[in-house]
Design a protein around this nucleic acid. Structure first.
Lengths: 336, 336
DNA sequence: CTAAATTACGAAAACGGTTTCGTAAATAAA
DNA sequence: TTTATTTACGAAACCGTTTTCGTAATTTAG
């Protein structure tokens, strides 16, 4: 069975290619009768238009890209679902591109988009990304970009983020209220905006409650689980070891719990834990994990909606479209 | 800044379009000197070729599709990483398409591929998929397909699966050895091949150990977490309630643990649990969860490798390429 | 020194759609 | 009845590449 194209279809119908094309696109130029006949034959012959030919002629791909660090992360996989749900209604396809937290990968991926592969981009930058000129370049080239979660402050385009400062503040304050006074903060990146805002929220909470900041308690984690385990273990083996932890990223859950088990630290008695996480399974950990949960699905949905607004209305500017959504602190047994 | 194409590039270089194209593709027809000049100018002008034009002309998209039920699942997200790792080396892009366990979605997605959007497909079918003619259709149309994990037995093409029968057998036997004698089996689908093989492995293990099969203990779960919770709760509230559970899919972990907590069932004393799961976090559940872990990354890698073999060598047949990889039973506290 | 082969490039035809424009026939307006 | 408009379709250009083929200029072989 060969690949059937519009030419073959036209031949079968004894019509011109242009008439068939118009019929398929429901053009007013074509009579209802002909449209029916075309649609019917197209269905019978299993005709599916070549998307690349359409994209080429129409100069739009009907594709959007989602560029994220990882897919094996509950925040991102939920966000994808949100994005997909709106892309579907718009008849768009979603290209998922993974940077694996590498700046080089991110640059390569975005560079490729210059060629017109996608009509717009939803982006959450890698932990390594400090310089954002590769992103600005794309925007000046006319490709609309919407950040979600991990944004670049100095790039002027729409951003969907959560109240990272306030969440971290609330989380830290919560631990303080639970009588923790030596609270550690586990960060993911020195450059990432969300990471810094979370750090600032933590610092502000300490300050407001007159707790002295101790640099020993601020740990920069890596992308390597083994390494993180070691760092956390070291943190928890100090002389004045912390009795509270605010972890700013989901993937630290396992190393924290493992370290506590290995060092026989009792949670929450000896150590109270809060973690930024969207893991459904947080509730059945033992002790169940207190989390700051981001509205991942909603964020994906909003980001996509905004992007489509820009795609559908060329003079809609993304520049001043910043939205901050609230995360929620879900208190569970690990902190109370 | 406008979109620069090969024509503009040729103009800038005072060369013909064909020469530039050949230079970019490192053709032997072009002198080293010219190639250098072209490459340099292309880089300077930030030229990126339009992938759709190339695809159209070359009649190949340099894209492969990964069609899976969900992305928020550790098996699939790990498999994606495996697939991506090999696609990258081949210069291919990966389109991730989600069926959300819906047969209709699956059909729509695959149908679209008839148009030539992708050169090949890696597929794990939805739980609803019983009829596989939409898949055979694609194959007869010349699109190579490789199944991974969830395959259709009656479609003749390559399949990368795990030893579902043996794994379920081993899991069940393990529970028996731990003195469980009323073992329940939680299934995901009545039609899915892997689900049935797992069920058979469970049944065979019971038979070999002279344990009578009780239909009450075999529960078909759904895609709705709420519903699953109710089903499991009901299972665990029976008069002769089970003292062992083999769960054939990862997403049942939460409802099982929640039900046990709510019903105050002690694990592993009153109930021993094994679950098919790739969750890293299984180890820090309390009690830590005994799992059957599939080599997800490897499976993705193998499936992709096989697909590329078929793409690169047109007379390589996928028909008899079935591979079964071993899963491993990781015994943890929930069963011993 | 001439003929054959090679080198390095350009013109033009694809690829499979969409869109613009032109035009007969049918209908409506004058 | 004549003219203007509408309807329904087809021819051909176009989107941005790649590839085939043709050909001057240069090199090599005889």
């Amino acid at each position: 069975m060969k690949h059937i194209n519009i030419k073959a279809l036209a031949l079968e119908l004894n019509l011109s290619v242009s008439t068939v094309s118009k019929a398929l696109n429901d053009s007013y130029e074509i009579s209802e009768e002909t449209k029916q006949r075309v649609l019917e034959t197209a269905a019978r012959l299993n005709y599916v238009p070549n998307p690349y030919a359409s994209s080429l002629r129409g100069r739009k791909s009907k594709n959007i890209a989602v560029v994220i660090p990882e897919v094996a992360d509950s925040f991102f996989s939920l966000a994808i679902n949100g994005i997909e749900s709106v892309a579907k209604t718009k008849g768009y396809h979603v290209l998922i591109c993974l940077t694996h937290e590498s700046f080089e990968n991110e640059k390569t991926i975005l560079k490729e988009f210059q060629g017109g592969r996608v009509d717009g981009v939803l982006l959450s930058v890698s932990t390594e990304t400090t310089n954002c000129s590769h992103i600005s370049d794309l925007i000046t080239n006319g490709l609309p970009i919407v950040f979600f979660d991990r944004a670049c402050d100095d790039v002027e385009t729409a951003k969907i983020t959560t109240d990272d400062f306030e969440s971290a503040y609330k989380a830290t304050e919560h631990l303080i209220q639970q009588k923790a006074d030596r609270i550690a903060f586990l960060s993911i990146s020195k450059s990432l905006s969300i990471s810094n805002k979370r750090l600032e929220g933590y610092l502000k909470a300490l300050e407001d409650h007159h707790i002295k900041v101790d640099q020993k308690y601020i740990v920069d984690c890596t992308n390597d689980p083994e390494q993180n385990y070691k760092l956390i273990k070291k943190l928890l083996q100090q002389k004045h070891k912390p009795n509270g932890i605010v972890a700013s990223v989901e993937k630290l859950t396992t190393p924290i719990y493992t370290a506590c088990k290995d060092l026989q630290i009792k949670v929450p008695e000896d150590l109270k834990i809060v973690c930024f996480s969207n893991l459904e399974i947080a509730a059945i950990l033992n002790p169940s994990l207190t989390t700051i949960t981001q509205p991942a699905f909603e964020m994906g949905k909003m980001a996509a909606t905004l992007l489509f607004k820009a795609l559908e209305n060329r003079n809609f500017s993304l520049v001043k479209e910043d939205f901050m959504i609230q995360s929620t602190l879900v208190v569970r047994d690990s902190s109370s």
